[in-house]
């Protein structure tokens, strides 16, 4: 079997469009959970209202693309307010339950047949991404070679000898935008978490009563964190929808949120670069397992009597779930975390 190919594919994916979705979603979650301690289990819903806000505006109502973006972001703000107002004054686990319930409500509303003529029901929607790809500066027919980097009719190939990275011109456009967004958000969050504002958030994570006793309006800060994290989640939804050029309600299931948590914990919560590193590693591991296994099955290395192709996905997710449990037990601070800090976790 072609190990080089599997490895190249996994590396290609590790910095590719889908990884960007996980990184963005987890960056938003990092502000909410990592820094503020808010248990938002509805990050998938923020991505969903972002993606559907855009898709519905453009595909169903014929609005301009930029207006779709604004509508998606507005929907995320409204969702954050709806989730936050009832629960942010209550204990942490109430927010967890409300957000998970709200996410499920959102998903079921989008897949309902009642308004399927607009939303497409469980099939979702497409035909909203053209305005985005019209702006694509990477031409679909470029062909050139520059050392180990080459363009083959719009397809970028970076050949490192042992492995190579390959992206279509559409991927490149999504990645350019996605990585720029990540840089912007990390820049903003970097400023915020090192400011007095960020200090209040960390204080709330540690003990909100104490912060309240020091004259801070804890509710307002929590709400700000929920809204900003949700907005970043909606942006993750945009990138997700545009990269796939479609939206489907079932893509925004609760598991989507759980993967954001895996990414965040893998990289290290309350670490600025944790989500990006976690997303790259998560998606690399997923791809190397999934593709390695299917390659091995295809080439007859593993008999189909042991596992068949349909079982590869479940097996990889089983391994990821196992990895998440083991990680939380044995290295709960993630890759970038600080063990000394974590030992103090007495909650």
């Amino acid at each position: 079997m072609d190990w080089q190919f599997v490895f190249s594919q996994a590396l290609t994916q590790a910095i590719g469009p889908t990884m960007l979705v996980y990184a963005l979603g987890a960056i938003g979650l990092n502000l909410q959970f990592g820094y503020t301690g808010l248990l938002n289990f509805g990050q998938a819903a923020f991505a969903a209202v972002g993606a559907y806000g855009l898709a519905l505006s453009v595909a169903a109502f014929g609005l301009p693309f930029w207006l779709g973006i604004i509508i998606g972001l507005g929907a995320a703000v409204i969702l954050a307010l709806l989730m936050g107002i009832p629960t942010l004054r209550l204990r942490a686990d109430y927010l967890a339950i409300v957000t998970i319930a709200a996410a499920e409500i959102v998903r079921r509303l989008f897949r309902a047949t009642v308004w399927a003529e607009h939303t497409g029901g469980s099939d979702g929607m497409r035909e909203f991404s053209d305005p985005f790809f019209e702006l694509n500066p990477f031409p679909p027919d470029a062909t050139w070679t520059l050392g180990f980097i080459s363009m083959d009719s719009g397809r970028l190939i970076v050949d490192f000898g042992l492995f190579d990275l390959q992206y279509s011109n559409r991927d490149l456009w999504v990645m350019a935008v996605g990585w720029a967004l990540i840089a912007i958000f990390l820049g903003i969050l970097g400023l915020l978490v090192h400011s007095p504002w960020g200090r209040v958030l960390k204080g709330i994570r540690e003990d909100e009563e104490a912060v309240r006793s020091l004259g801070k309006n804890v509710f307002a800060y929590k709400m700000q964190a929920l809204v900003i994290g949700g907005l970043i989640g909606a942006v993750a939804g945009f990138v997700f929808a545009l990269a796939r050029a479609n939206v489907q309600p079932d893509a925004f299931s609760t598991d989507f949120t759980f993967y954001f948590y895996i990414v965040l914990i893998l990289g290290g919560a309350a670490r600025l670069f944790g989500p990006v590193l976690g997303a790259a590693l998560f998606w690399f591991l997923y791809n190397i397992f999934a593709q390695g296994l299917s390659e091995a099955i295809n080439s007859g290395l593993i008999s189909t009597d042991i596992i068949n192709q349909t079982q590869v996905g479940p097996l990889v997710f089983f391994l990821l779930g196992l990895g998440m449990v083991l990680l939380l037990i044995f290295r709960p601070q993630g890759i970038l975390g600080n063990r000394r800090e974590l030992m103090l976790d007495v909650r």
């Binding site: 994916q13 893509a251 609760t254 598991d255 989507f256 791809n287 999934a290 479940p314 997710f317």
Partner: peptide, 10 residues
């Protein structure tokens, strides 16, 4: 597979 990932849960 990339598409499968998210569909898998449901």
């Amino acid at each position: 597979f990339a598409g499968l990932l998210l569909g898998l849960g449901v």
